[in-house]
Design a protein around this nucleic acid. Structure first.
Lengths: 112, 112
DNA sequence: TAATAGTTGATAATGATTATCATTAAGAGG
DNA sequence: CCTCTTAATGATAATCATTATCAACTATTA
């Protein structure tokens, strides 16, 4: 839950397996899914084939660098205003969202 | 490209196969991927296991009803302002984004 | 202690996507 | 029309992430 690296299941498994080598992949899948379905963690669906997971369930965006594939949290913006507007204008209720921004991070922009 | 239903590959295949039954799945996969990688269509990665595709590459959000799984386009908001702010404050360049909102549509909110 | 319910690890099964490959189609000169 | 080269196709096999299965183990309860 404290991991800020947005790991994949495989990365979580590797980490867990280091600590306790008796734990299998299935257990990691089961427990991560349990966290997600109980709302204690979030699944990040991206354009990459593997899902990433985030233990931070607070409202924030994600930025993915299309060069180095790094995932960065984006916190400093007011997300409530557009959400409320959309709810009102479309007569829907929004419980949750995933915003994924794609582009180049500052490091990858430097290199040419 | 004119299909506004955000179809899956399977749905595209079904439609295409009706028109010309000699066309196989592989061809649909290949050509849809070609459209996506050349920027003429977009892949929508959602929390569901199958990807959906959108021939409309203009900037807009998507709303997915968690009851009936309907996907709705959300156009009426100004997406440029937060994007520009984020680019400036994080020193990144954003080429593209996916915003997926999850909740209940007006029809599913009515039923109880 | 005994009974029941829940969790686990190993492995098989599933299902969406991708790779392979022989065949067919398309294009470019001549 | 021909030949040559290159690209696209359909069928099928392979891949890979995820899920289901199931016997063994653990926890809980009475």
């Amino acid at each position: 839950m404290s991991d800020k690296s947005h790991p994949t299941i495989q990365e979580i498994y590797n980490k867990v397996h280091m600590i306790d080598s008796t734990i299998g992949q299935a257990t990691v899948y089961r427990n991560v899914n349990k966290l997600v379905s109980s709302g204690k963690a979030k699944k990040l669906s991206t354009n990459s084939e593997v899902d990433h997971y985030d233990g931070d369930i607070s409202n924030h965006y994600h930025f993915i660098c299309t060069s180095c594939n790094k995932i960065v949290d984006i916190f400093n913006f007011d997300v409530d205003i557009p959400i409320k507007d959309i709810q009102k204008s479309h007569n829907i209720s929004i419980d949750n969202f995933d915003m994924v921004l794609y582009g180049k991070c500052s490091e990858c922009n430097k290199s040419y």
